[in-house]
Simulated scan of single mutants.
Amino acid sequence: MTRLRETHTIVWRGITIEVRYEERWLGSDGPFSTAHLELESVAPARAPLPVTETGYRSHFTPAAVIGAAGGAVAFAIAWLEREAGAQAWKAQEEAARQMTLF
Results as ranks from 00 to 15, higher is better:
Gly67Ala: 15
Leu4Gln: 06
Arg3Gly: 01
Gly27His: 01
Gln98His: 15
Arg5Ile: 01
Glu38Ile: 00
Ser58Thr: 12
Ala69Asn: 05
Val73Thr: 02
Trp12Ile: 08
Arg13Leu: 12
Gly30Ser: 00
Trp89His: 11
His36Gln: 02
Trp25Glu: 04
Phe75Gln: 06
Ala64Arg: 10
Trp12Gly: 03
Arg97Ala: 11
Pro31Val: 08
Pro44Cys: 09
Phe60Arg: 14
Arg82Met: 11
Ala72Met: 06
Ala95Arg: 11
Ser33Thr: 08
Ile17Lys: 01
Met1Cys: 08
Ala72Ile: 04
Trp25Asn: 12
Glu93Leu: 15
Phe60Asp: 08
Glu40Asn: 10
Tyr21Lys: 00
Thr54Ala: 13
Val19Gln: 00
Gln98Arg: 15
Asp29His: 09
Thr9Lys: 11
His8Pro: 11
Ala63Gln: 08
Leu49Gly: 01
Ala47Gly: 13
Glu83Met: 05
Val65Arg: 14
Glu23Thr: 09
Thr61Glu: 15
Gly67Leu: 06
Ser33Arg: 02
Glu81Ser: 14
Leu80Gln: 06
Ala88Arg: 09
Ser58Asp: 04
Thr9Asp: 11
Pro50Phe: 03
Thr61Asn: 09
Ala96Met: 14
Thr52Phe: 02
Ala95Val: 15
Ser33Phe: 01
Ala45Pro: 11
Arg97Ser: 14
Ser28Asn: 13
Ala45His: 10
Trp79Ala: 07
Ala68Glu: 07
Pro50Trp: 02
